[in-house]
Structures are given as structure tokens and as C-alpha cells.
Design a protein around this nucleic acid. Sequence first.
DNA 1: AAATTCTCCTGAAGGC
DNA 2: TGCCTTCAGGAGAATT
Length: 270
Amino acid sequence: MPELPEVETTRNGIEPHLLGQTIQGIIIRQPRLRWPVPPQLKQLLPDQQIHAVERRAKYLLLRMDKGTLILHLGMSGSLRILPADTAPGPHDHVDLLFNNQCLRLRDPRRFGAVLWTQTDPAEHKLIRHLGPEPFSEQFNGSYLHAQSRRRRIAVKNFIMDGKVVVGVGNIYASEALFRAGICPTRSSNRISKGRYEKLACDIKEVLQEAIAQGGTTLKDFQREDGSAGYFAQHLHVYGREGEPCRNCGRPIIKQRIGQRSSFYCSHCQR
DNA sequence: AAATTCTCCTGAAGGC
DNA sequence: TGCCTTCAGGAGAATT
């Protein structure tokens, strides 16, 4: 499931192939993604040069002369760089065509998105109201503490709220809370500033380490060259129900928190 | 305002 | 073997 590290891994992978390249065309095999893929892209994209490949939250932004293509991988999406004549598979929904290669979006569950904006993407309605990037200076313990004062939701749901901080999905929320020694069900307004300072650092750390490993491949995620990410073997709690805690040896507990499966050690996390 | 539930979709896994 | 049910999840929309 692409969270921030997987999206950043993808950005790192595709950027060198796309910078300065001119789009020849787009093939839309399945326009029904999370939102319809705009049909006018077929007229709009040809001859446009890609100036930058950026990431904001889990959105990838391909900046061009006339606007920005906004891509989201949903939960099963992946982007690959392939020779232009590579035969598409059943879930290969969109191709961006270049001289002799293509950028291909594969997304079995079709929760992803391909959108277009002519104006500043930071003002796009999907992006405008998002919280800070986890690697920004603004995101720290004081910020988390201040944001959480009037909120009583479980801290795990709190750090997964995109208005609080972007990019922390189900896997890395569990992992960061394990590192911080905080029980995921604890009410967000009942955590001290000091513990939030540790949590903010641990969020930055776990995301950074995952990016260094090329992301986490559980099922769907592939890098731009088709290879897997290796962070899965560094996971301490996610997907480890019943297995021994790497710190104390007690079995990892699985519990649903807000419709999402969560994993933690009831001894190491309070 | 904040929290919860619903929704999109397909493939894997489990039950009988 | 095969059909049916359940679950997984990002995140906006709808509802409480």
C-alpha cells in the first residue's frame, strides 16, 4: 500500500526518466479510477515538456508548461518506466508516452487518480487543506501537542489524519507508535508534550528509513523498475500478530482501531 | 467541530 | 473443486 515512502520511492525512480522529456501522447484504457480521468488530456498533453517531478503528501505532481498532472496511487497503484512497446496487463489503466519509453499506471483496485490542474497545485481542492509534510520543521512535538489538545480520538487515527500531518498511513502509524512506546488506542489529548516530541522524531525516522529501503512491499507495491521495496523486513509490529515483540518477546496484538487493523505490543506501548 | 460510517474496487483467503 | 463471504485499505463524502 503506497504511503509516503512508497510514493517518494516512486518519485525518485521516475524523475530521472521524465525530467526534460516531451510527452508524445496518453493512452487511457480505463478512465474509471477514483475520479474519471479527464478525456481532454489526450489533446492537452502532447508536446508538453516535464519540468519537475514533485511530491506533496501522497500526490505526485508532474509539472508542465500548461499545468500540472496530479497522480495518486490509491492503495494498489504503481508506476513503471517501460519500453514504449511493452504489452499492457489487465490493470494497466493509463500510459504516458515519450519518445521510446512510457510511464505506465497499474492499479488493480482503481483507488488511484489521474487529474489535471492549470493553476498552482498547492491550491487544488485535494491539496489545499492538507497538513504539513512530516519532514518539515513545522512538524514537531509542539505542533502535535497543540493540534491534539481538543481532540479525543485514538492517537493512531490522529497521526493518520491528513489535516494533522500527511503521508502517515496504516503501516507507518503502527510502526512509529511502537518506536515511541505509545499505545495506539490512547486518546490524543492525553499524551504529554514530551512524548509527542519523541513521536514526531520517530515518525520522521521511520519514514526516512523506509525511503532508504525503497519502501515496503506487502502485495501490490512495485518500484518504477518493477522491483520490490525492502522495508517489510524491518517492520516491528505491522502484520506480526502473535509473533514475539522484537523488544520484549511478548506476542504482538492485532486490534481494529477506527476500521483499520492495528498492531502493537501491550507491554512496550502504554 | 469532531468523530464515525460509507464508498469506490479487486484479489486473496477462509468456510462449507 | 467451486461458490459464497469476508477482509484489506487511501481518503473524500456523507452522516451522526
